[in-house]
Amino acid sequence: MNITINKKLYDFITEDPSILTDKWLSTRANTPSSVYSCDNHQAEGRLREQNGLFIRTVANVLIASEDTVNQEIKAWAQTVALDRVETRTPIHEVIHQFKIFRGIFWDHIREFVSKHKGEISESDIFHWSSLIHSTFDTVIGTFAEQYFTYYSGRLSVQSELINELSVPIIPLSDTIGVLPLIGEIDTQRARYITESVLMQSKDYHLTHLFIDLSGVSIIDTMVANQLFQITDILKLIGVNVHISGIRPEIAQTAVQLGINFNKIPTQANLKQALKANKILISDIH
């Protein structure tokens, strides 16, 4: 390895990172709502700072140890991945920008080679090619991992919020509540419903809970078993559960799957369920 020429290349790349960044930013198209849009002036300063650090991180592979470079790559990837997730930038857009900038980066190296022909051997060029391409690939891979981590975390938070908002017990009186369930209920949501219903029933001091399924399109055996568990758990704390609104297609599927709702009081709709238990809407204040 030619340490002297590596240092010269490093200095050439990092002396003025804005040269490379300007060339990269000049390739941007007018893409509304994208962080990479040429008319997104608010993001431009951030892009310049991030790309300047990216240039120094990649160039550092010429003079620094592998451990040092990997630490810098991870730090850069964490910062930029979080920014792209927060700006809702699709990962394919980011990968496309990596591709564009890789070409610009290598054009800059070619300029250096043309200026120092007598000092550079063929083995130096092959070494740089292997080293820098490998570093770009490592950055892209590390970025993708960090992006997935942050994106998955955000989806998890949003999912929890949606679940929380979609399991509201409506108190009809001091001891009576209604839980209208809407949409598809998968195993994960069913577990959340169990936890939420137990907590809300205790908070509201309920003695009767009417679960209305008229807005639910599919119930499988696992979800049905979860509903049975809700019933059993609530009975232990003194809450009687009543089911209403089982749609005909769900009832037919339940029979085919061998799901038995006989141990839970059921009615065709919520009004009938309330009436069957001598609860009149007009009596509720």
Score class of each variant (00 low, 15 high):
266 T>W: 01
243 I>Q: 06
235 K>W: 14
110 R>S: 11
264 I>A: 07
24 W>T: 00
283 D>L: 04
260 N>Q: 01
249 E>C: 05
7 K>L: 11
205 H>N: 14
231 T>V: 15
83 D>Y: 15
163 N>C: 06
14 T>A: 04
248 P>M: 02
120 I>C: 10
226 Q>G: 09
87 T>H: 03
240 N>T: 13
279 I>H: 01
158 Q>N: 01
218 I>R: 13
30 N>Q: 07
282 S>Q: 07
108 H>S: 07
168 P>Q: 04
273 A>N: 04
246 I>C: 10
8 K>F: 03
4 T>H: 15
45 G>A: 12
281 I>T: 14
145 E>I: 09
222 M>Q: 11
91 I>K: 00
4 T>A: 14
188 Q>W: 07
3 I>A: 11
227 L>M: 15
72 E>H: 13
237 I>M: 12
270 L>H: 10
91 I>G: 04
177 G>K: 06
230 I>N: 03
246 I>S: 04
12 F>A: 07
285 H>T: 11
130 S>D: 03
115 K>C: 11
122 E>K: 12
35 V>L: 14
19 I>T: 13
17 P>C: 06
241 V>E: 06
88 R>A: 12
166 S>T: 01
273 A>M: 10
105 F>V: 02
244 S>R: 11
56 R>C: 12
35 V>F: 15
160 E>R: 11
57 T>H: 08
250 I>G: 12
260 N>W: 07
169 I>N: 10
282 S>E: 11
158 Q>V: 01
104 I>S: 01
72 E>N: 13
91 I>N: 05
71 Q>N: 12
69 V>F: 05
236 L>Q: 02
265 P>I: 04
156 S>A: 15
205 H>K: 07
252 Q>S: 09
191 R>I: 02
102 R>N: 07
222 M>K: 09
273 A>E: 09
179 L>S: 06
139 V>F: 05
125 I>R: 10
55 I>G: 07
197 V>Y: 10
187 T>E: 11
187 T>S: 15
59 A>R: 03
137 D>R: 02
234 L>M: 01
209 L>C: 08
24 W>P: 07
268 A>Q: 13
281 I>R: 08
99 K>E: 14
14 T>N: 08
248 P>V: 00
11 D>E: 14
157 V>D: 13
198 L>P: 00
250 I>T: 10
194 T>H: 09
113 V>H: 08
262 N>E: 13
9 L>D: 04
209 L>N: 04
144 A>S: 14
231 T>G: 02
81 A>T: 03
90 P>I: 03
190 A>L: 09
144 A>Q: 04
129 S>L: 07
222 M>F: 05
75 A>S: 09
17 P>R: 04
244 S>K: 11
89 T>Y: 02
126 F>T: 11
244 S>F: 07
199 M>Y: 15
139 V>R: 06
248 P>K: 00
27 T>R: 11
41 H>M: 03
125 I>F: 13
